[in-house]
Nucleic acid binder design. Structure first.
Lengths: 326, 326
DNA sequence: CTGAAAGCGCTTACAG
DNA sequence: CTGAAAGCGCTTACAG
């Protein structure tokens, strides 16, 4: 009545556990067809399932990569996960997702420890801002790790992401090319991604001899967007670059409520390009990131295969940016 | 240079591995403070991490529950996961998420097997429609499992969800109370959730002596929504119940493109009530599900604690339903 | 092609 | 409070 083991199979098929192990492990050439058939039949009858703990213990590795992810209520995560799952499968690795809560440092640290204790093949950290403790922990482990959709500013740490500086530069230049000279950047945080985008934005403004108003900080969320519209209006700009689709959506909702017409009174350029951009009215013009690619490339990278550092972004024109003429 | 084990700690602290194990395992009362201090210090110096495989093997259980989830591009998953993670944490369980692709039967089955092989405490299946094979596998295992946001129509199988029949009944009645008599149901599938909603819808129509047009099948996606608007229009109804927020959003986008005014020409009642409902213009009136509760209750249930079968739904009035007067 | 044996890194009665 | 020993369920040289 207890869970069957290879010992049970061995007993019933009259061979040793070594042979059972070989058959079940598909060590072709090391057993006769007859033995194979018998063992397989009995394994099936018994409803045998291997005990991964035992296998992992003796093998000292796992063939699974851990994906640590947080609850940022952006919905790009599905695409990233799809890319990771797909590529991992191709390379014979399973994926175990560890959820780190909503930028909860304790949970985040705990998730890394869990991954380490499981001897995973590699650790992927999606949209996770590590603190010093996290980084030390990761570096001291023998396990390769790679940040996904976050670039820490150094090639010493594996990462795959969009080039956020370039992304923001392009977004800004796009608005400038459409006649805008007063442009805000809203909803960005002060960490790596935020700083990089801020830098790209400032560079583009400077390159065009334009003055950049103060960047409006936020946390990439819808709530950030709704609460930031007033500040954007106060800056007297004609266009705003939103830190994420959710921020853009929040800005848009607030604009509707306050009678601000988009794009007539205010143009919005979003960053991400998820399906959210199609759902709003007007649809949001965006800097579109290739999250699927980011995911699959990060698997390559953490497994030591050739992989891109940066995945190209594209401008997707929809209906939230007006062309200004004077 | 190799990963340190309790053996290394034992050697350096001059105690047995049994004692090290006790200290590390916090078996209070079974070691002196002095020993504890010494062992902990050396463990830290060595950067010791326990080997979960070894622990799991000897303990024969895991303190982790597996959450199998698929890629349905609905974004309710975050709330479900939050509820699960939170409650699991309170009960001393970790959560390992296994991703089953997008209604991919092979992946789904594989995910279940993976969970079984890991001897998890329980298996949670979120928005997963099991086939016969899956169910047999699950039942034959000794591991408790619980469906999340899916009710298989029998109390024999653990599940926590909204009462979909009631939900659809309420949605229909709400529209009827607002003067609608011609109401479509769109984007629903033919599986459990879809059938239950269909039943509730039909019951409500019948109870009000109204004729229900043919239900318009779909897969809960945005694409389903956009492609279904024409069929809804062809039915000549004044209101439509959308199978999900994404379907509602798709219907709405198509309506905008085709010059159909919402809610003046067509009222939309959405099912789910996620943030998507706030992002669209007009905002979507919805039957709002309490996904967080569904998640946390399902943890209770799979761990054998008292838990609800159905979690209440509420009507959230926004701007997509018109009141008809005649 | 097959088996006996060692060993992976832990936990936990058992004895003291 | 501590240690020696057994054992969890596998895999894999080694020998035949």
């Amino acid at each position: 009545m207890t869970k069957p083991t290879i010992k049970d199979i061995a007993a019933q098929s009259g061979v040793s556990i070594a042979t059972v192990s070989r058959v079940l492990g598909n060590k072709t050439g090391s057993y006769s067809q007859k033995t194979q058939k018998k063992v397989l039949k009995i394994a099936k009858e018994l409803g045998y399932r291997k005990n991964s703990a035992a296998v992992d213990l003796v093998r000292k590795r796992t063939d699974v990569i851990a994906l640590i992810i947080n609850a940022t209520p952006t919905n790009f995560s599905t695409q990233i996960i799809d890319g990771i799952q797909q590529r991992a499968g191709e390379l014979g690795q399973g994926v175990m997702i560890l959820y780190a809560g909503n930028r909860d440092h304790a949970l985040q640290h705990q998730a890394i420890i869990t991954a380490l204790e499981r001897s995973v093949t590699g650790i992927l950290l999606a949209a996770i801002e590590p603190d010093e403790k996290d980084l030390t922990l990761l570096k001291d482990s023998r396990i390769p790790f790679c940040f996904v959709s976050l670039y820490l500013g150094t090639r010493d740490i594996l990462a795959v992401s969009s080039d956020n500086r370039d992304l923001a530069y392009q977004a800004t230049q796009y608005l400038i090319d459409h006649g805008h000279t007063q442009i805000s950047l809203a909803g960005i945080d002060g960490y790596h991604t935020g700083s990089q985008r801020q830098a790209g934005y400032r560079e583009a403004m400077a390159a065009n001899q334009l003055r950049a108003p103060a960047v409006l900080p936020g946390d990439y969320s819808y709530a950030s967007g709704t609460s930031l519209l007033q500040a954007v209006r106060d800056q007297g700009v004609t266009a705003v670059i939103a830190a994420s689709d959710m921020v853009a959506a929040g800005l848009l909702t607030a604009a509707h409520q306050q009678g601000v017409r988009v794009p007539a009174d205010l143009s919005i350029m979003s960053i991400d390009g998820t399906i959210i951009c199609q759902i709003t009215t007007p649809a949001l013009t965006s800097m579109t990131q290739d999250f699927y690619q980011i995911g699959s490339q990060s698997v390559n990278k953490v497994l030591g295969q050739p992989a891109a550092d940066f995945v190209p972004v594209t401008v997707t024109e929809r209906d939230s940016v007006a062309t200004l003429t004077r």
